[in-house]
Design a protein around this nucleic acid. Structure first.
Length: 579
DNA sequence: TTAGGGTTAG
Protein backbone atom coordinates (compact mmCIF):
# COMPACT_ATOMS: atom_id res chain seq x y z
CA UNK A 1 0.00 0.00 0.00
CA UNK A 2 1.33 3.46 -0.89
CA UNK A 3 1.97 6.03 1.85
CA UNK A 4 -0.91 8.19 0.53
CA UNK A 5 -3.38 5.33 0.62
CA UNK A 6 -2.24 4.31 4.11
CA UNK A 7 -2.82 7.86 5.43
CA UNK A 8 -6.23 8.12 3.75
CA UNK A 9 -7.19 4.80 5.37
CA UNK A 10 -6.03 6.10 8.76
CA UNK A 11 -8.14 9.24 8.28
CA UNK A 12 -11.11 7.09 7.39
CA UNK A 13 -11.05 5.47 10.81
CA UNK A 14 -10.17 8.64 12.73
CA UNK A 15 -12.63 9.46 15.51
CA UNK A 16 -10.94 12.06 17.69
CA UNK A 17 -9.12 15.34 17.37
CA UNK A 18 -6.18 13.94 19.34
CA UNK A 19 -5.74 11.12 16.84
CA UNK A 20 -6.15 13.55 13.96
CA UNK A 21 -3.33 15.73 15.30
CA UNK A 22 -1.08 12.66 15.33
CA UNK A 23 -2.03 11.80 11.75
CA UNK A 24 -1.44 15.43 10.76
CA UNK A 25 2.06 15.35 12.32
CA UNK A 26 2.73 12.12 10.44
CA UNK A 27 1.54 13.74 7.17
CA UNK A 28 3.97 16.66 7.68
CA UNK A 29 6.91 14.37 8.50
CA UNK A 30 6.09 12.33 5.37
CA UNK A 31 6.08 15.53 3.29
CA UNK A 32 2.49 14.85 2.17
CA UNK A 33 0.84 18.03 3.51
CA UNK A 34 0.46 19.39 -0.06
CA UNK A 35 -1.24 16.20 -1.22
CA UNK A 36 -4.72 17.52 -2.24
CA UNK A 37 -6.83 14.48 -1.27
CA UNK A 38 -5.11 14.16 2.13
CA UNK A 39 -5.28 17.89 2.90
CA UNK A 40 -8.97 17.96 1.98
CA UNK A 41 -9.76 14.92 4.06
CA UNK A 42 -7.99 16.42 7.07
CA UNK A 43 -9.76 19.75 6.66
CA UNK A 44 -13.16 18.15 6.14
CA UNK A 45 -12.85 16.05 9.27
CA UNK A 46 -11.92 19.06 11.42
CA UNK A 47 -14.67 21.26 9.98
CA UNK A 48 -17.57 18.80 10.02
CA UNK A 49 -17.00 16.02 12.53
CA UNK A 50 -18.41 16.37 16.04
CA UNK A 51 -14.99 15.34 17.36
CA UNK A 52 -13.28 17.87 15.06
CA UNK A 53 -12.42 21.50 15.70
CA UNK A 54 -13.31 24.49 13.57
CA UNK A 55 -10.31 26.41 14.93
CA UNK A 56 -8.02 23.60 13.78
CA UNK A 57 -9.88 23.50 10.44
CA UNK A 58 -9.21 27.22 10.01
CA UNK A 59 -5.52 26.67 10.73
CA UNK A 60 -5.36 23.90 8.11
CA UNK A 61 -7.29 26.03 5.63
CA UNK A 62 -4.89 28.97 5.98
CA UNK A 63 -1.97 26.62 5.48
CA UNK A 64 -3.42 25.53 2.13
CA UNK A 65 -1.62 27.50 -0.55
CA UNK A 66 -4.30 27.38 -3.26
CA UNK A 67 -7.52 26.06 -1.73
CA UNK A 68 -9.79 24.38 -4.25
CA UNK A 69 -13.60 24.28 -4.24
CA UNK A 70 -13.71 21.22 -1.99
CA UNK A 71 -11.61 22.94 0.68
CA UNK A 72 -13.75 26.12 0.55
CA UNK A 73 -16.90 24.02 0.75
CA UNK A 74 -15.64 22.23 3.86
CA UNK A 75 -14.85 25.42 5.75
CA UNK A 76 -18.12 27.13 4.64
CA UNK A 77 -20.13 24.06 5.61
CA UNK A 78 -18.36 23.83 8.97
CA UNK A 79 -19.19 27.42 9.89
CA UNK A 80 -22.72 27.24 8.42
CA UNK A 81 -23.61 24.57 10.99
CA UNK A 82 -21.58 26.13 13.81
CA UNK A 83 -22.60 28.69 16.42
CA UNK A 84 -21.15 31.38 14.16
CA UNK A 85 -22.83 31.02 10.73
CA UNK A 86 -21.77 34.58 9.81
CA UNK A 87 -18.21 33.25 9.33
CA UNK A 88 -19.52 30.92 6.60
CA UNK A 89 -20.59 34.05 4.73
CA UNK A 90 -17.21 35.69 5.37
CA UNK A 91 -15.45 32.66 3.82
CA UNK A 92 -17.95 32.59 0.95
CA UNK A 93 -17.15 36.25 0.21
CA UNK A 94 -13.44 35.46 0.19
CA UNK A 95 -14.08 32.54 -2.15
CA UNK A 96 -15.89 34.86 -4.59
CA UNK A 97 -12.63 36.85 -4.95
CA UNK A 98 -10.48 33.74 -5.26
CA UNK A 99 -9.64 33.04 -8.89
CA UNK A 100 -8.43 29.49 -8.22
CA UNK A 101 -11.78 27.97 -7.34
CA UNK A 102 -15.30 27.86 -8.73
CA UNK A 103 -18.47 27.77 -6.68
CA UNK A 104 -20.60 24.67 -7.16
CA UNK A 105 -23.99 23.38 -5.96
CA UNK A 106 -22.46 22.37 -2.62
CA UNK A 107 -21.08 25.88 -2.04
CA UNK A 108 -24.52 27.38 -2.65
CA UNK A 109 -26.26 24.86 -0.40
CA UNK A 110 -23.87 25.58 2.48
CA UNK A 111 -23.89 29.37 2.20
CA UNK A 112 -27.70 29.37 1.94
CA UNK A 113 -27.84 27.30 5.13
CA UNK A 114 -25.81 30.06 6.84
CA UNK A 115 -28.10 32.76 5.40
CA UNK A 116 -31.15 30.86 6.67
CA UNK A 117 -29.78 30.54 10.17
CA UNK A 118 -28.92 34.22 10.60
CA UNK A 119 -31.77 35.47 8.38
CA UNK A 120 -29.34 37.28 6.05
CA UNK A 121 -31.94 38.45 3.54
CA UNK A 122 -29.72 40.59 1.32
CA UNK A 123 -27.08 37.89 1.09
CA UNK A 124 -29.71 35.28 0.28
CA UNK A 125 -31.01 37.39 -2.61
CA UNK A 126 -27.46 37.99 -3.84
CA UNK A 127 -26.68 34.25 -3.73
CA UNK A 128 -30.01 33.57 -5.45
CA UNK A 129 -28.90 35.87 -8.31
CA UNK A 130 -25.57 34.06 -8.57
CA UNK A 131 -27.33 30.68 -8.56
CA UNK A 132 -29.39 31.81 -11.57
CA UNK A 133 -26.36 33.31 -13.36
CA UNK A 134 -24.35 30.14 -12.81
CA UNK A 135 -27.20 27.98 -14.13
CA UNK A 136 -27.85 26.13 -10.87
CA UNK A 137 -31.49 27.22 -10.62
CA UNK A 138 -32.60 23.81 -11.89
CA UNK A 139 -30.85 22.02 -9.02
CA UNK A 140 -33.52 20.60 -6.71
CA UNK A 141 -31.37 20.77 -3.57
CA UNK A 142 -30.14 24.34 -4.12
CA UNK A 143 -33.72 25.42 -4.83
CA UNK A 144 -35.03 23.65 -1.73
CA UNK A 145 -32.41 25.54 0.25
CA UNK A 146 -33.63 28.77 -1.33
CA UNK A 147 -37.25 27.93 -0.39
CA UNK A 148 -36.17 27.29 3.21
CA UNK A 149 -34.06 30.41 3.32
CA UNK A 150 -36.82 32.73 2.03
CA UNK A 151 -39.27 30.93 4.31
CA UNK A 152 -37.10 31.60 7.39
CA UNK A 153 -37.18 35.30 6.52
CA UNK A 154 -40.95 35.29 6.11
CA UNK A 155 -40.73 35.91 2.35
CA UNK A 156 -43.38 33.32 1.55
CA UNK A 157 -44.27 34.79 -1.82
CA UNK A 158 -40.67 34.53 -3.12
CA UNK A 159 -40.33 31.04 -1.62
CA UNK A 160 -43.43 29.98 -3.57
CA UNK A 161 -42.04 31.58 -6.75
CA UNK A 162 -38.79 29.63 -6.44
CA UNK A 163 -40.80 26.46 -5.77
CA UNK A 164 -43.09 27.03 -8.77
CA UNK A 165 -40.15 27.62 -11.10
CA UNK A 166 -38.39 24.40 -10.13
CA UNK A 167 -38.30 22.12 -13.19
CA UNK A 168 -38.62 19.06 -10.95
CA UNK A 169 -39.77 18.87 -7.34
CA UNK A 170 -39.08 15.94 -5.10
CA UNK A 171 -40.64 14.99 -1.76
CA UNK A 172 -38.21 17.13 0.28
CA UNK A 173 -38.99 20.19 -1.87
CA UNK A 174 -42.75 19.72 -1.34
CA UNK A 175 -42.20 19.25 2.39
CA UNK A 176 -40.15 22.45 2.56
CA UNK A 177 -42.98 24.37 0.84
CA UNK A 178 -45.63 22.91 3.17
CA UNK A 179 -43.49 23.68 6.25
CA UNK A 180 -42.95 27.20 4.97
CA UNK A 181 -46.71 27.85 4.83
CA UNK A 182 -47.33 26.07 8.11
CA UNK A 183 -44.63 28.01 9.97
CA UNK A 184 -45.78 31.33 8.56
CA UNK A 185 -49.33 30.71 9.77
CA UNK A 186 -50.71 30.18 6.25
CA UNK A 187 -52.42 26.93 7.16
CA UNK A 188 -55.03 26.82 4.43
CA UNK A 189 -52.23 27.33 1.88
CA UNK A 190 -50.33 24.41 3.50
CA UNK A 191 -53.37 22.15 3.00
CA UNK A 192 -53.84 23.41 -0.57
CA UNK A 193 -50.20 22.59 -1.32
CA UNK A 194 -50.80 19.10 0.06
CA UNK A 195 -53.80 18.68 -2.28
CA UNK A 196 -51.65 19.82 -5.19
CA UNK A 197 -48.97 17.35 -4.11
CA UNK A 198 -51.49 14.52 -4.09
CA UNK A 199 -52.85 15.49 -7.49
CA UNK A 200 -49.30 15.22 -8.84
CA UNK A 201 -49.04 11.72 -7.30
CA UNK A 202 -46.18 12.57 -4.95
CA UNK A 203 -46.06 10.19 -1.97
CA UNK A 204 -46.03 11.75 1.48
CA UNK A 205 -43.88 10.81 4.47
CA UNK A 206 -43.55 11.66 8.17
CA UNK A 207 -42.08 15.08 7.44
CA UNK A 208 -45.09 16.00 5.27
CA UNK A 209 -47.44 14.79 8.00
CA UNK A 210 -45.88 16.88 10.75
CA UNK A 211 -46.33 20.15 8.82
CA UNK A 212 -49.87 19.24 7.82
CA UNK A 213 -50.94 18.03 11.27
CA UNK A 214 -49.59 21.26 12.74
CA UNK A 215 -51.68 23.25 10.24
CA UNK A 216 -54.78 21.18 11.12
CA UNK A 217 -54.10 22.02 14.79
CA UNK A 218 -54.05 25.74 14.10
CA UNK A 219 -57.12 25.58 11.87
CA UNK A 220 -59.06 23.36 14.26
CA UNK A 221 -59.52 21.03 11.26
CA UNK A 222 -60.21 17.82 13.17
CA UNK A 223 -61.62 15.82 10.24
CA UNK A 224 -58.51 16.38 8.11
CA UNK A 225 -56.34 15.79 11.19
CA UNK A 226 -58.05 12.44 11.81
CA UNK A 227 -57.38 11.50 8.17
CA UNK A 228 -53.70 12.34 8.67
CA UNK A 229 -53.68 10.20 11.80
CA UNK A 230 -55.24 7.28 9.89
CA UNK A 231 -52.66 7.68 7.13
CA UNK A 232 -49.88 7.70 9.73
CA UNK A 233 -51.22 4.48 11.31
CA UNK A 234 -51.63 2.70 8.00
CA UNK A 235 -48.08 3.57 6.98
CA UNK A 236 -46.39 2.90 10.29
CA UNK A 237 -45.58 6.59 10.75
CA UNK A 238 -47.55 6.96 13.99
CA UNK A 239 -44.60 5.49 15.88
CA UNK A 240 -42.52 8.55 14.96
CA UNK A 241 -41.86 10.85 17.89
CA UNK A 242 -42.40 13.93 15.72
CA UNK A 243 -45.71 12.67 14.30
CA UNK A 244 -46.92 11.62 17.77
CA UNK A 245 -46.07 15.03 19.21
CA UNK A 246 -47.85 16.82 16.37
CA UNK A 247 -50.91 14.57 16.86
CA UNK A 248 -51.14 15.31 20.61
CA UNK A 249 -51.09 19.01 19.88
CA UNK A 250 -53.59 18.66 17.03
CA UNK A 251 -56.15 16.69 19.05
CA UNK A 252 -55.80 19.03 22.02
CA UNK A 253 -56.19 22.14 19.84
CA UNK A 254 -59.15 20.64 18.00
CA UNK A 255 -60.97 20.08 21.28
CA UNK A 256 -60.46 16.28 21.51
CA UNK A 257 -58.41 16.29 24.68
CA UNK A 258 -59.27 12.64 25.42
CA UNK A 259 -57.78 11.54 22.11
CA UNK A 260 -54.66 13.62 22.83
CA UNK A 261 -54.31 11.84 26.20
CA UNK A 262 -54.71 8.43 24.53
CA UNK A 263 -51.87 9.12 22.10
CA UNK A 264 -49.74 10.61 24.87
CA UNK A 265 -50.19 7.50 27.06
CA UNK A 266 -49.32 5.15 24.21
CA UNK A 267 -46.13 6.92 23.19
CA UNK A 268 -43.08 4.75 23.82
CA UNK A 269 -40.68 7.68 23.84
CA UNK A 270 -41.50 11.12 25.11
CA UNK A 271 -39.38 14.24 24.69
CA UNK A 272 -39.86 17.84 25.85
CA UNK A 273 -42.29 18.49 22.96
CA UNK A 274 -44.45 15.51 23.98
CA UNK A 275 -44.73 16.66 27.60
CA UNK A 276 -45.20 20.32 26.70
CA UNK A 277 -47.91 19.58 24.13
CA UNK A 278 -49.83 17.61 26.77
CA UNK A 279 -49.33 20.18 29.54
CA UNK A 280 -50.28 23.09 27.25
CA UNK A 281 -53.27 20.99 26.09
CA UNK A 282 -54.48 20.58 29.68
CA UNK A 283 -53.77 24.28 30.27
CA UNK A 284 -55.88 25.68 27.43
CA UNK A 285 -58.72 23.34 28.39
CA UNK A 286 -58.67 24.88 31.88
CA UNK A 287 -57.59 21.59 33.52
CA UNK A 288 -54.89 22.92 35.83
CA UNK A 289 -54.77 19.98 38.26
CA UNK A 290 -54.09 17.54 35.43
CA UNK A 291 -51.46 19.88 33.99
CA UNK A 292 -49.73 19.84 37.39
CA UNK A 293 -49.92 16.04 37.63
CA UNK A 294 -48.48 15.71 34.12
CA UNK A 295 -45.69 18.12 35.08
CA UNK A 296 -44.81 15.97 38.10
CA UNK A 297 -44.65 12.88 35.90
CA UNK A 298 -42.42 14.77 33.51
CA UNK A 299 -39.97 15.49 36.31
CA UNK A 300 -40.04 11.83 37.35
CA UNK A 301 -39.17 10.93 33.74
CA UNK A 302 -36.16 13.24 34.18
CA UNK A 303 -37.16 15.65 31.43
CA UNK A 304 -36.09 19.22 32.17
CA UNK A 305 -38.98 21.68 31.78
CA UNK A 306 -38.55 24.84 29.71
CA UNK A 307 -40.36 28.17 29.51
CA UNK A 308 -43.21 26.68 27.44
CA UNK A 309 -43.88 24.03 30.10
CA UNK A 310 -44.53 26.80 32.61
CA UNK A 311 -46.78 28.72 30.22
CA UNK A 312 -48.99 25.62 30.00
CA UNK A 313 -48.94 25.11 33.77
CA UNK A 314 -49.73 28.74 34.58
CA UNK A 315 -52.49 28.89 31.97
CA UNK A 316 -54.12 25.79 33.53
CA UNK A 317 -53.82 27.16 37.07
CA UNK A 318 -55.22 30.52 36.02
CA UNK A 319 -58.29 29.06 34.27
CA UNK A 320 -59.02 26.66 37.12
CA UNK A 321 -58.57 29.34 39.75
CA UNK A 322 -55.57 27.57 41.36
CA UNK A 323 -53.92 30.76 42.62
CA UNK A 324 -51.57 29.30 45.25
CA UNK A 325 -50.36 26.53 42.95
CA UNK A 326 -49.84 28.98 40.08
CA UNK A 327 -47.76 31.30 42.26
CA UNK A 328 -45.77 28.31 43.54
CA UNK A 329 -44.86 27.21 40.00
CA UNK A 330 -44.09 30.76 38.91
CA UNK A 331 -41.57 31.00 41.76
CA UNK A 332 -40.18 27.50 41.11
CA UNK A 333 -39.30 28.52 37.57
CA UNK A 334 -36.35 30.60 38.67
CA UNK A 335 -35.59 29.11 42.11
CA UNK A 336 -35.40 25.47 41.05
CA UNK A 337 -35.23 25.35 37.27
CA UNK A 338 -33.13 28.44 36.62
CA UNK A 339 -35.58 29.76 34.06
CA UNK A 340 -36.07 33.51 33.99
CA UNK A 341 -39.80 34.32 33.73
CA UNK A 342 -40.53 36.13 30.49
CA UNK A 343 -43.20 38.75 29.93
CA UNK A 344 -45.71 36.04 29.00
CA UNK A 345 -45.18 34.31 32.35
CA UNK A 346 -45.81 37.61 34.11
CA UNK A 347 -48.93 37.93 31.96
CA UNK A 348 -50.12 34.54 33.28
CA UNK A 349 -49.38 35.64 36.86
CA UNK A 350 -51.37 38.86 36.42
CA UNK A 351 -54.18 36.83 34.87
CA UNK A 352 -53.99 34.30 37.73
CA UNK A 353 -54.52 36.97 40.41
CA UNK A 354 -56.83 39.07 38.24
CA UNK A 355 -59.23 36.25 37.37
CA UNK A 356 -59.41 35.30 41.03
CA UNK A 357 -60.50 38.86 41.86
CA UNK A 358 -57.21 39.80 43.53
CA UNK A 359 -56.92 42.94 41.41
CA UNK A 360 -54.80 44.96 43.88
CA UNK A 361 -52.18 42.22 43.86
CA UNK A 362 -52.33 42.00 40.05
CA UNK A 363 -51.86 45.78 39.83
CA UNK A 364 -48.87 45.58 42.19
CA UNK A 365 -47.22 42.96 39.95
CA UNK A 366 -47.73 44.95 36.76
CA UNK A 367 -46.55 48.18 38.41
CA UNK A 368 -43.39 46.57 39.85
CA UNK A 369 -42.55 44.52 36.78
CA UNK A 370 -39.43 45.45 34.85
CA UNK A 371 -41.43 44.57 31.74
CA UNK A 372 -43.26 47.81 30.98
CA UNK A 373 -45.33 45.92 28.50
CA UNK A 374 -48.74 46.76 27.13
CA UNK A 375 -49.71 43.05 27.25
CA UNK A 376 -49.55 43.10 31.08
CA UNK A 377 -51.74 46.21 31.38
CA UNK A 378 -54.16 44.73 28.85
CA UNK A 379 -54.37 41.50 30.86
CA UNK A 380 -55.13 43.53 33.98
CA UNK A 381 -57.81 45.46 32.09
CA UNK A 382 -59.36 42.12 31.08
CA UNK A 383 -59.53 41.06 34.73
CA UNK A 384 -61.13 44.39 35.62
CA UNK A 385 -63.85 43.58 33.10
CA UNK A 386 -64.56 40.22 34.75
CA UNK A 387 -64.77 41.79 38.21
CA UNK A 388 -66.30 45.11 37.08
CA UNK A 389 -63.56 47.25 38.67
CA UNK A 390 -63.67 50.77 37.22
CA UNK A 391 -60.83 52.31 39.29
CA UNK A 392 -58.10 49.82 38.38
CA UNK A 393 -59.52 49.52 34.85
CA UNK A 394 -58.98 53.24 34.35
CA UNK A 395 -55.44 53.02 35.74
CA UNK A 396 -54.67 50.23 33.24
CA UNK A 397 -56.22 52.19 30.39
CA UNK A 398 -54.19 55.32 31.23
CA UNK A 399 -50.97 53.31 31.25
CA UNK A 400 -51.86 51.77 27.87
CA UNK A 401 -52.52 55.27 26.56
CA UNK A 402 -49.16 56.54 27.89
CA UNK A 403 -47.44 53.59 26.23
CA UNK A 404 -49.14 54.53 22.95
CA UNK A 405 -50.53 51.02 22.77
CA UNK A 406 -54.28 51.56 23.06
CA UNK A 407 -56.28 49.26 20.82
CA UNK A 408 -59.99 49.22 19.99
CA UNK A 409 -60.24 46.05 22.10
CA UNK A 410 -58.97 47.98 25.17
CA UNK A 411 -61.54 50.74 24.67
CA UNK A 412 -64.27 48.13 24.40
CA UNK A 413 -63.10 46.39 27.57
CA UNK A 414 -63.31 49.62 29.53
CA UNK A 415 -66.59 50.53 27.81
CA UNK A 416 -67.98 47.19 29.01
CA UNK A 417 -66.94 48.00 32.58
CA UNK A 418 -68.64 51.40 32.30
CA UNK A 419 -71.69 49.70 30.80
CA UNK A 420 -71.87 47.41 33.85
CA UNK A 421 -72.03 50.52 36.02
CA UNK A 422 -74.64 52.02 33.69
CA UNK A 423 -72.18 54.84 33.02
CA UNK A 424 -73.35 56.04 29.61
CA UNK A 425 -70.88 58.94 29.57
CA UNK A 426 -68.00 56.48 30.04
CA UNK A 427 -69.19 54.33 27.17
CA UNK A 428 -69.57 57.39 25.00
CA UNK A 429 -66.00 58.52 25.87
CA UNK A 430 -64.67 55.15 24.71
CA UNK A 431 -66.61 55.35 21.46
CA UNK A 432 -65.21 58.83 20.83
CA UNK A 433 -61.71 57.65 21.69
CA UNK A 434 -61.85 54.95 19.05
CA UNK A 435 -63.08 57.41 16.45
CA UNK A 436 -60.86 60.38 17.31
CA UNK A 437 -57.66 58.41 17.81
CA UNK A 438 -58.24 56.45 14.64
CA UNK A 439 -57.70 53.26 16.61
CA UNK A 440 -57.85 50.26 14.36
CA UNK A 441 -60.35 47.51 15.00
CA UNK A 442 -59.67 43.85 14.37
CA UNK A 443 -62.42 42.19 12.38
CA UNK A 444 -63.66 39.03 14.06
CA UNK A 445 -63.60 35.82 12.09
CA UNK A 446 -64.43 32.19 12.77
CA UNK A 447 -63.43 28.98 11.07
CA UNK A 448 -65.60 25.91 10.84
CA UNK A 449 -64.62 22.62 9.26
CA UNK A 450 -67.33 20.84 7.30
CA UNK A 451 -66.11 17.54 5.89
CA UNK A 452 -62.63 18.30 4.64
CA UNK A 453 -63.24 21.98 3.94
CA UNK A 454 -62.44 24.80 6.33
CA UNK A 455 -64.85 27.73 5.90
CA UNK A 456 -64.14 31.21 7.15
CA UNK A 457 -66.85 33.62 8.28
CA UNK A 458 -66.12 37.26 8.99
CA UNK A 459 -68.33 39.45 11.18
CA UNK A 460 -71.32 40.87 9.31
CA UNK A 461 -69.93 39.30 6.14
CA UNK A 462 -72.32 39.05 3.22
CA UNK A 463 -69.68 38.36 0.59
CA UNK A 464 -69.41 34.68 1.53
CA UNK A 465 -70.90 32.50 -1.19
CA UNK A 466 -73.12 30.79 1.36
CA UNK A 467 -74.38 34.11 2.79
CA UNK A 468 -78.05 33.81 1.82
CA UNK A 469 -78.29 30.27 3.22
CA UNK A 470 -76.41 31.24 6.39
CA UNK A 471 -78.39 34.37 7.21
CA UNK A 472 -81.67 32.58 6.64
CA UNK A 473 -80.60 29.69 8.86
CA UNK A 474 -79.33 32.10 11.52
CA UNK A 475 -82.75 33.77 11.82
CA UNK A 476 -84.30 30.37 12.41
CA UNK A 477 -81.62 29.40 14.95
CA UNK A 478 -82.06 32.64 16.90
CA UNK A 479 -85.83 32.03 17.00
CA UNK A 480 -85.34 28.46 18.29
CA UNK A 481 -82.70 29.58 20.81
CA UNK A 482 -85.11 32.17 22.21
CA UNK A 483 -87.20 29.31 23.65
CA UNK A 484 -84.18 28.22 25.69
CA UNK A 485 -83.24 31.41 27.44
CA UNK A 486 -81.47 33.35 24.72
CA UNK A 487 -82.45 36.98 24.65
CA UNK A 488 -81.25 38.48 21.38
CA UNK A 489 -79.37 41.74 21.33
CA UNK A 490 -82.47 43.60 20.08
CA UNK A 491 -83.96 43.40 23.55
CA UNK A 492 -80.70 43.71 25.45
CA UNK A 493 -79.48 47.15 26.42
CA UNK A 494 -76.88 48.32 23.93
CA UNK A 495 -74.61 48.99 26.91
CA UNK A 496 -74.76 45.40 28.05
CA UNK A 497 -73.44 43.92 24.87
CA UNK A 498 -70.35 46.02 24.45
CA UNK A 499 -67.84 43.27 24.94
CA UNK A 500 -66.01 42.59 21.73
CA UNK A 501 -64.43 44.59 19.00
CA UNK A 502 -67.09 43.38 16.67
CA UNK A 503 -69.80 45.00 18.73
CA UNK A 504 -68.86 48.60 18.04
CA UNK A 505 -69.01 48.03 14.34
CA UNK A 506 -72.18 46.07 14.08
CA UNK A 507 -74.96 44.41 15.96
CA UNK A 508 -74.13 41.16 17.79
CA UNK A 509 -76.56 39.31 15.56
CA UNK A 510 -74.01 38.73 12.86
CA UNK A 511 -70.91 37.93 14.86
CA UNK A 512 -68.72 35.49 12.99
CA UNK A 513 -69.26 32.55 15.37
CA UNK A 514 -73.04 32.85 14.99
CA UNK A 515 -72.68 32.74 11.20
CA UNK A 516 -70.34 29.73 11.45
CA UNK A 517 -72.67 27.90 13.86
CA UNK A 518 -75.71 28.53 11.64
CA UNK A 519 -73.72 27.14 8.70
CA UNK A 520 -72.64 24.14 10.78
CA UNK A 521 -76.24 23.41 11.82
CA UNK A 522 -77.39 23.64 8.19
CA UNK A 523 -74.62 21.47 6.79
CA UNK A 524 -74.09 18.69 9.34
CA UNK A 525 -76.25 15.78 10.45
CA UNK A 526 -78.27 15.93 13.68
CA UNK A 527 -76.16 15.24 16.73
CA UNK A 528 -72.85 16.05 15.02
CA UNK A 529 -70.41 17.99 17.17
CA UNK A 530 -69.75 21.54 15.94
CA UNK A 531 -66.28 22.98 16.35
CA UNK A 532 -65.44 26.64 15.86
CA UNK A 533 -62.09 28.44 15.96
CA UNK A 534 -62.30 32.17 16.58
CA UNK A 535 -59.60 34.88 16.46
CA UNK A 536 -61.09 37.03 19.27
CA UNK A 537 -62.69 36.32 22.64
CA UNK A 538 -66.32 35.23 22.63
CA UNK A 539 -68.71 38.02 23.66
CA UNK A 540 -71.33 37.66 26.36
CA UNK A 541 -74.21 37.68 23.88
CA UNK A 542 -72.67 34.96 21.70
CA UNK A 543 -71.81 32.91 24.79
CA UNK A 544 -75.43 32.89 25.95
CA UNK A 545 -76.59 32.27 22.36
CA UNK A 546 -74.34 29.18 22.01
CA UNK A 547 -75.50 27.81 25.39
CA UNK A 548 -79.11 28.03 24.22
CA UNK A 549 -78.30 26.53 20.80
CA UNK A 550 -76.55 23.57 22.43
CA UNK A 551 -79.80 22.66 24.16
CA UNK A 552 -82.28 23.75 21.46
CA UNK A 553 -80.56 21.65 18.79
CA UNK A 554 -79.06 19.03 21.11
CA UNK A 555 -75.56 19.67 19.83
CA UNK A 556 -72.18 19.71 21.51
CA UNK A 557 -70.45 22.92 20.40
CA UNK A 558 -66.76 23.49 21.00
CA UNK A 559 -65.41 27.00 20.57
CA UNK A 560 -61.70 27.71 20.69
CA UNK A 561 -61.34 31.43 21.22
CA UNK A 562 -58.15 33.49 21.33
CA UNK A 563 -57.34 32.24 24.83
CA UNK A 564 -59.18 29.05 25.77
CA UNK A 565 -61.76 26.39 24.96
CA UNK A 566 -65.47 26.54 25.66
CA UNK A 567 -67.36 23.22 25.59
CA UNK A 568 -71.06 23.90 25.27
CA UNK A 569 -73.41 21.04 26.07
CA UNK A 570 -77.01 20.88 27.34
CA UNK A 571 -77.18 24.63 27.89
CA UNK A 572 -73.96 24.86 29.93
CA UNK A 573 -70.39 25.85 29.18
CA UNK A 574 -67.21 24.27 30.57
CA UNK A 575 -65.92 27.74 31.54
CA UNK A 576 -68.86 28.12 33.95
CA UNK A 577 -69.45 31.57 32.44
CA UNK A 578 -66.09 32.70 33.77
CA UNK A 579 -63.68 33.57 30.95
C1' DT B 1 -17.07 8.74 1.39
C1' DT B 2 -19.24 17.09 0.26
C1' DA B 3 -25.99 18.65 0.24
C1' DG B 4 -31.82 19.92 1.18
C1' DG B 5 -36.51 17.89 6.06
C1' DG B 6 -40.35 17.96 11.14
C1' DT B 7 -43.51 19.15 16.39
C1' DT B 8 -45.06 22.74 21.57
C1' DA B 9 -45.44 29.13 22.74
C1' DG B 10 -45.53 33.59 20.00
Amino acid sequence: MSKEKAILTLLQGCNSLKRLRKIHAHVIVSGLHHHVAIANKLLNFCAISVSGSLAYAQLLFHQTEFPQTEAWNSIIRGFAQSSSPIDAIVFYNQMVWDSFSMRDTFTFSFVLKACERIKAERKCKEVHGTVIRCGYDADVIVCTNLVKCYSAMGSVYIARQVFDKMPARDLVAWNAMISCFSQQGLHQEALQTYNQMRSENVDIDGFTLVGLISSCAHLGALNIGVQMHRFARENGLDQSLYVGNALIDMYAKCGSLDQAILIFDRMQRKDIFTWNSMIVGYGVHGRGSEAIYCFQQMLEARIQPNSITFLGLLCGCSHQGLVQEGVKYFNLMSSKFRLRPEVKHYGCLVDLYGRAGKLEKALEIVSNSSHNDSVLWRTLLGSCKIHKNVTIGEIAMNRLFELGATSAGDCILLATIYAGENDKAGVSRMRKMIKSQGIKTTPGWSWIEIGEQVHKFVVDDKSNRYSIEVYEKLREVIYQASFFGYVGDESVSSLDVLSTIETLKTSCTYHSEKLAIAFGLARTADGTQIRIVKNLRVCRDCHSFIKAVSVAFNREIIVRDRVRFHHFKGGKCSCNDYW
